[in-house]
Each structure stands twice: as C-alpha cells, then as structure tokens.
Nucleic acid binder design. Structure first.
Length: 855
RNA sequence: GCCGGAGUGGCGGAACGGCAUACGCGAUCGACUCAAAAUCGAUUGCCCUAACGGGCAUGUGGGUUCGACUCCCACCUCCGGCACCA
C-alpha cells in the first residue's frame, strides 16, 4: 500500500461527480456560506451529542475522553479569551474523536456573580434578565464559532435546577462538619459591601473593584478546606499532566511549614496564661530574647488591664485596626510595637523575656504569637534593633564571613549551636529533633505543622448567588433546610444595593419561615454563596444535567470522570482549581464520587493582549471576536489564535495576522476548487519527480502535525506544516495537471491539508473533504504517515570544517560512512579550507553531517 | 526577598547537541491589469565584495564538546506568582 491508508483516492465511481462539478466556475472562498452550512448540519444531526451508560446510543466500545474548557462567566459578549480557550479545546476534542475516542464536550455558564448584580444596582434591571440576555449572545456566538459542543448538556449555574444541587452540596458538607459558621477576622470590601475570600484579596485590594479591603470580625460560613491541606498537596501525584508552575503556585498557596508548637507561660500579676507559639526553628529557642503578640490577640486585653501599659497598648491596637491590609503589609515598613510590661518564661531555659505587641505578627497565621529570635530571623532582628533589645547568637556560622560573633547577623543558615546549654556544639539540624522530643516529654511543646491556607469563606452579603440553605431558630439554633425542600429559591426583589447585610434580608416574606425541626418561627440565612462554589462542581453536573432526583447519576459520573483535558486561563491556577479539587475530595470521601482528582490533565493558555497591553474596555483596546468572525469567518479567527504562538504563552493580537491566516485558508480553498474540476488518476507513489515529492510532503505534514499535537499542543507549528504543504502544492501543481497521476497527487495534498486543518478550521476542513473525498471528515480516522514516504532516498549532507558549515552535498540516504567522507573530502569548497592542513579527526553522523577537524 | 517562565531578523515566532532564522506578518521587485485591489511569482539577519566568496550574529561573560539557541556556571533584563507566614 504505497500511498498510505488515507485519504482514499478517487477513482472509478466518483467520476460522474467530478464531471458534474467541472462546469462550475471557480468561486471565491466564502466562509459565511460554508460555515452556516456545516453549523446547520451539526445542529440538525446533533453530531456532538454523546449518550451516558445505559442510554440508547451509548458506545461503550470506545475509550472515553472528557474535554472541558473553563465555563465562561456570561457578561456582555464573549471576548477573544473565550475564543482562544474554546479554539484550543475544540482542536483537542476533534483530535481525540478522530483517534477513536468517545468525546464528551459540554459547556455552560457561570451565571451568578457581582457584575450582573452591580449592573442591577445601577440600572434596576434584574440580574436574571441581563444574565440571560448575555447567555443568549454567548450561545449564538459559540455556535457561530462552530465549537463542537454537546448542547444537550448545557447548564446555567443560576437556574434553580442547578443551584438546588449546589445547596445540596452545602448540606452534605454541613452534615460532615466541613461547613461551619464562625466569627472570624474577615476581609471586607467597603465598595462591594461584602466579605471576600482571602484568595480574592490581591495586594490588599478587592479582586473585583480594586478598593483597599478592611478587616472586620464577622460571623460567616466557612468550608473546611484546611482539613484537606495535606491531601491537596500529596495528590498532585495523582495528576497526569499539570503545568509545573500551577502546581508550584498551589503549593505556595497552601504553604505547609513543619515546625513545633512551644508553650511560653506568663505567671505575673496573678495571671497564669499559656502562650503557644509556632516556630519552624525550635533549634533557635535558646536565642529567644523577647516575645510578640499580634494586635488582634484575644489575651492582650487581660494582660494589660489596669497596668501602666494599658493606655499605650490600646492606642497602638486601635491605630493598627484602622490600617488597611495593604498599608500593614507594605514592604519597607519600619517595625513598630509597644511593650506590654509583662514577660513570659522560655521553657527551655527558664528565662523571663519581655512581651510586646507588634503588627508584624499576624493573628491569622500560627497562634498569633511568636518567640522572637533576633539573631536568626530578619524581622525579629529589625525589631530588636529598633527597640534596642538583646540579640543572642545561638548558631555559629560555618565560614569566615559568618563565624564571628556579631557579624553576619541575622544568620539564617546552619551551623554548630552555642549558648544553648546541653545542645552546645551540636549541629543545629541534629539538635532540632532532640529539642522537639525534649519539649514533648516535658509537656511544653510538640511537633506541629502549619499552613498558610485558611478555611474557605463561602458566604457573601449579596443578592445574585445561590442562597445558603440554612435557617435560624431561636429554639433549635442553626438548622439545615431538609433536602426535600430544596431548592431554597432566590426571591425576586427590587432593591439590590448592598447595605452591609445581604439585600435578601429585605425580603421579609422570604426570610420569615418555619423551623424545619420544631415548626416554630425561624429566619432564613440571607447570605448567598461565593460563585466559586457554583463552579467547583459544574463539571459533574454536565454528566447528567437534567437529573431531577440527584445531582448526578453515579454510573455516568464514574464513566466520564475525571476530566481528561481541562483548558483555561492561568488566572484560575489557585482559586477555582483548588476549590474544585477540594469539593471533589470531600464528595469522594462521602462516597458520592469515585475519583480523588477532578482534572487529570490541565492546559493553561496564555492571555491575548492588544498593543502589548491587557485588553480592557477602559483602555479601549478590546478585540470583538464577532467583528472578525463577520469579516473573515470563524475558521480564520480560530486558526489565527492557534497560529499566533504556542498557546500556553500569551500573544499580541494583530489584524494583519488574521488576514494572513485568512489568506492561507483561501489559498487552500482555491486549490480545492482547482483540483476538484480535474480528472484524477490513481495515486502513484512509485512515480518520481514532483508528484512523488508532493506526496512525501503530505506525509511529512501528517507526521509533523500529529507529533505537534501530542507534544503539548504545539498548534502554531502544526498549522505552519499545513501551510508548507499548501505552498508546495502551489509550487508544483501547474506542472502536475498534465497527467492524471499528477492531478491525483495534488488532490491528495489538498485533501490531506483539509483533514489536518480540520481541528482548527472545522468548516473549511469539512467542506473541502466532502468535495474531494466525499463523506464526513470528523468520521475519518486521523491520518497516519506512511513511513516509506517519510523516508528520503537522498539527503543533504552537511559538511563542516572545524564545526563551520562549508558545503552541502546531495548523497544517497543509505551511503556508508566511507562514502560520505570521500564525498566531503572531494568537495571543492571543503578543500579550500583543508589546504595545507592536517585532518586530525573525522566525525560522521550518517545521513546528516560530516565534520572534518583540521589543524 | 523567595518561587516560576522568558530573552533569537523590522515584528509574531521555528529549530531530538549537528544546515540558526521554518511558517506568518511587514517591506522591495516582477507578472496579470488601462489602473488599482485581489491573486501568482521572486527577494528579504547584519557587514565586506562588482562577483566568487568571506566575516559576524540566538541578552552578557565564562565552561563542556569535533560541534552549543540547545548542556553547565556566573551575571543582566523583562514577565508572572507569592511575600512581615514566624
């Protein structure tokens, strides 16, 4: 089978079709017509719909592939970021389908959220209406882009049919003790008048509106993601392929530190208080010279009540409270603090060390108190310098620079211990475990692990979200809404403006309810859930989107999960992806799911910029996909996005670039038109000359695109390979039209190009394939390159002298080393550089290169 | 400060340790046209040369190697993330 398996050559029966078409005058590439036609076919035939196990049409014989893009937030119209995500994802989906996979490729809308609500506050228009209008627009445009979505599985997270199950998940977590209500210092955005998750505070500012956030103590709902900190770390091992930097970002975010908890005691003035501290450096305990509490520390009040320090401490605490997180966290900030006039006892040596309050100690991390070791910690050192406190070195340096007593401080390195009683002389690393052991025996401490990760604050004082299914009863306290009363529907209201409490609180009829437990009067929870909750499980709902009796069918979930390829923006590297991982683990622990990780493979695409800057309405540099689809067609826009550069990197949008790709597609189109009207003979791989060369080039392109797909979605070079194939066809086509075998070669090139470009330009690919080969390209297996045609008879032998290129010689591919060397030495160009010199070494890389080393 | 990623023509970008600059954009020239657009074709890293040729170029400086964009060491710049996390 000299010409490979695919595409089929046209001969015999197809002739009539060809003759019929011959009369048609070559027409221009009209993407609009072609695209509308195929979109109708896909919609009418429900081409991309797949069935669940047990349903009619389910094909269990093929391996499954779940290809998923991060669902869009429907605000206004889709932008180029959406187009990129789905252009990349769709290419992957098509590629998998043509490799025999049953591909599930659903989409939906992350429809709850602040922008719709803020708009409602401004215009009075209900969020549901703007949101649904936007969804209309997304749906229409996605269809115009020709993305191969299974539309039967479409969902919106704002529908009661969906959020009913979001509420169900809340109840399940509550039952398991993973959802709890607590008063806690929280991040408060004064502009949006809501609390924020820690993850939504960027540089001390609200992630959404940029307003500096304030700290408040409020009762809020939390989800206990910290219970999963260790598994969220260790289960990275279960993932197949995630970008290293995303894993690193999550690792840093979870921020696991090993150390010890050590208890310092204050026994002054009739007080008898224990102050545990967390330290990663128990080996420096003997160097502690003072002790610091966070300004929010709950025992501060008692420590200074009625003492001379009371006034100053209170003043300091109040001042800190007024500061924004941003001010407090500022980089080159001078250390401030106030002495408490109290002291604690260092458990390792019985020393009394003075206590301070200082804002460099954070209540949120560790215990809100620290032992300060100025000799070995930069921050403690600065504080000690500012307050003229003793600095005691307990770890010696190991080199000239650091060994001297007061030079090189603070010293964070390792070395032998000093001034540490019976541990003197030991290396600090060895002493570490001994000290912890000793503390444990004495009951003064223990090994401990701390995380930067905080529990997930899920309640929001906003309207446009899923109501939290909880009820407050004076008799029974907090009572969950029974499952059979779900959904707790979001009521219609008129005033959406936040007033520091949820706008829902004003819907008195709705708030007033019966206690599900005692039947007495009760009030509904008026907070709604963070929208990240909605998107933490949507990928499971897609698997069984219409189920009214359960969030999903277990068989369907077991069949399709996990997501085999997840595609989205790197901006979700921490929040969304970690929340989804947590929710899936929690559900798996309750035996509602069988997988531990939702996303086996993750691909994060880079952001498209315009004129080097992030696109934004205020900057006026946005690119509207609709405009480009209108002007050049969806195929051009999609293919251009994949051609801009490696998709994991960003790229700058260029109108000329889209035109270039459009030109290429039109060129392919014209090639098809031209060859379609010519009588083709049998493909003849045995023939020589241009026909053979073109055939070989087509197989090279098959091989190249296939490898580029598999090597981390190198779409830019894959598309470049198809361009090369088309260019080569243009170069030789006129000479080949003379004989039927030549026409067949050009036809093969055109059909192959259409097959290979199909994942990026599905409409044009489908159209050309149908015209040249008949049938549906998406039902064709991905082509395989014929190794015989990949192999070359002759190769260009590169000849170097001392590593410098001196000549290129055509040589037989099979030629032995001796022959290649002889050829190289005979070359006139080479000899010029050998003149009068002695060849000391000859390197031969068969089929490639000869390097002559001379002296 | 710590952790990632990246520095290659005028621009976006290619290159298992072996032909640097594929492909595209832009530019120049030519064909077609009365003309323009579209299209087709050619040229296009820099320097020297009339030409044949030669020299220099992948952020900088070293190293390994017959041979380095690629590997190693040091540094510079840009981008992203985290950051008073004990």
């Amino acid at each position: 089978m000299a010409h490979g398996r695919h595409p089929r050559t046209r001969s015999g029966g197809g002739g009539a079709f060809v003759l019929h078409k011959i009369a048609v005058v070559s027409s221009a590439y009209e993407p609009k017509k072609i695209e509308a036609r195929w979109q109708k076919v896909w919609a009418d035939e429900r081409t991309w719909e797949v069935a669940n196990p047990g349903q009619p049409g389910f094909d269990g014989s093929r391996p499954k592939a779940y290809v998923l893009e991060m669902l869009p937030y429907p605000s206004g119209e889709p932008h180029v970021g959406h187009l990129k995500t789905y252009a990349v994802g769709d290419a992957i989906a098509h590629f998998r389908r043509r490799h025999g996979y049953e591909v599930i490729h659903p989409m939906g809308y992350d429809a709850f959220g602040l922008p719709a609500e803020n708009n409602a506050i401004k215009t009075g228009e209900p969020p549901r209406e703007v949101t649904e209008r936007s969804i209309e627009s997304f749906r229409r445009q996605f269809q115009e882009w020709g993305i191969s979505i299974d539309w039967a599985r479409e969902i919106g997270t704002h529908t009661p049919e969906y959020y009913r199950w979001t509420q169900w998940i809340f109840l399940k977590l509550f039952e398991r003790g993973l959802a709890y209500r607590a008063e806690a210092p929280v991040q408060w955005c004064p502009k949006d008048a809501t609390v924020l998750a820690n993850e939504q505070v960027i540089d001390g500012r609200c992630d959404r509106c940029g307003t500096p956030v304030e700290q408040r103590r409020l009762e809020q709902w939390f989800w206990k993601i910290t219970d999963y900190a260790d598994r969220l770390l260790s289960d990275f091992d279960l993932l197949e392929s995630w970008p290293e930097h995303v894993v690193t970002m999550q690792r840093n975010w979870i921020g696991r530190s090993e150390g010890a908890e050590v208890t310092f005691r204050c026994q002054e003035g009739g007080l008898d208080l224990d102050f545990p501290v967390f330290t990663t450096r128990p080996d420096t305990l003997f160097g502690a010279t003072f002790f610091v509490l966070a300004p929010e520390h709950p025992e501060l009040e008692r420590l200074v009540a009625g003492t001379p320090a009371e006034e100053a401490v209170r003043e300091y605490v109040n001042r800190v409270a007024r500061e924004s997180a941003e001010e407090r966290g500022a980089e080159d900030r001078d250390k401030t603090g106030v002495p408490l006039g109290r002291s604690v006892v260092n458990p390792v040596n019985g020393e009394e060390i003075p206590m301070f309050v200082a804002d460099y100690v954070l209540m949120e991390y560790g215990t809100g108190a620290i032992m300060a070791v100025p000799a070995h910690d930069n921050r403690d050192y600065e504080f000690a310098k500012a307050f003229d406190l003793p600095i005691r070195r307990v770890i010696e340096g190991v080199d000239e620079e650091t060994v001297r007593d007061d030079a090189g401080l603070p010293y964070a390195g390792d070395g032998p211990m000093t001034g540490s009683g019976r541990f003197d002389g030991k290396h600090n690393r060895d002493a570490y475990a001994e000290i912890v052991e000793w503390l444990t025996e004495e009951g003064r401490g223990r090994a401990s692990v701390n995380y930067r990760l905080r529990d997930w604050l899920v309640s929001r004082q906003r309207y446009w979200g899923a109501p939290i299914p909880m009820v407050y009863c004076d008799e029974c306290g907090i009572v969950p809404v029974p499952e059979d009363q779900l959904p707790v529907e979001l009521p219609e209201i008129v005033d959406y403006a936040p007033k520091g409490r949820s706008p829902l609180a004003a819907a008195e009829d709705w708030v007033a309810t019966e206690c599900p437990r005692c039947g007495g009067p009760a009030r509904r929870e008026t907070d709604t859930m963070d929208t990240f909750v909605d998107s933490a499980w949507y990928f499971i709902r897609y698997l069984d989107p219409q189920d009214e009796d359960a969030p999903w069918d277990r068989d369907a979930a077991d069949h399709w999960m996990p997501v085999d390829q997840y595609i989205g923006g790197v901006e979700h590297a921490i929040l969304h992806l970690m929340y989804a991982r947590f929710v899936v683990k929690a559900l798996a622990d309750m035996d509602w799911l069988s997988v531990q990780e939702p996303f086996a493979n993750l691909f994060t695409q880079g952001m498209i910029t315009r004129d080097g800057a992030k696109m934004s309405k205020s900057r006026g540099n946005t690119v509207s996909p609709a405009d480009y689809v209108e002007r050049y067609g969806a195929d051009s826009a999609r293919t251009y996005i994949c051609f801009m550069g490696p998709p994991e990197r960003g790229g700058d949008w260029s109108d000329e670039g889209v035109e270039g790709v459009n030109r290429f597609l039109a060129r392919l189109w014209r090639l098809c038109e031209e060859v379609e009207g010519r009588e083709a003979g049998e493909l003849d791989a045995g023939a020589g000359g241009d026909a053979r060369e073109l055939l070989a080039k087509a197989h090279w392109a098959i091989d190249k695109t296939t490898r580029d797909f598999q090597r981390g979605f190198q779409f830019n070079t894959a598309i470049a390979a198809v361009m090369e194939l088309v260019n080569d066809a243009y170069r030789v086509k006129d000479g080949l039209y003379g004989d039927p075998a030549g026409v067949a070669a050009v036809r093969f090139a055109a059909a192959t190009a259409s097959s290979l470009i199909f994942p990026f330009a599905p409409h044009l690919g489908a159209e050309i394939w149908e015209r040249l080969e008949g049938g549906r390209i998406w039902e064709q297996p991905w082509p395989e390159a014929d190794p015989e045609l990949l192999a070359r008879d002759t190769v260009t032998l590169v000849v170097q002298v001392n590593g410098k290129l001196r000549d290129r010689i055509e040589a037989a591919a099979e030629a032995p080393e001796e022959e290649l060397l002889a050829l190289a030495r005979e070359s006139e160009k080479v000899r010029r550089h050998l003149d009068g010199k002695e060849i000391v070494k000859e390197i031969v890389v068969p089929g490639k290169l000869v390097n002559l080393v001379v002296r």
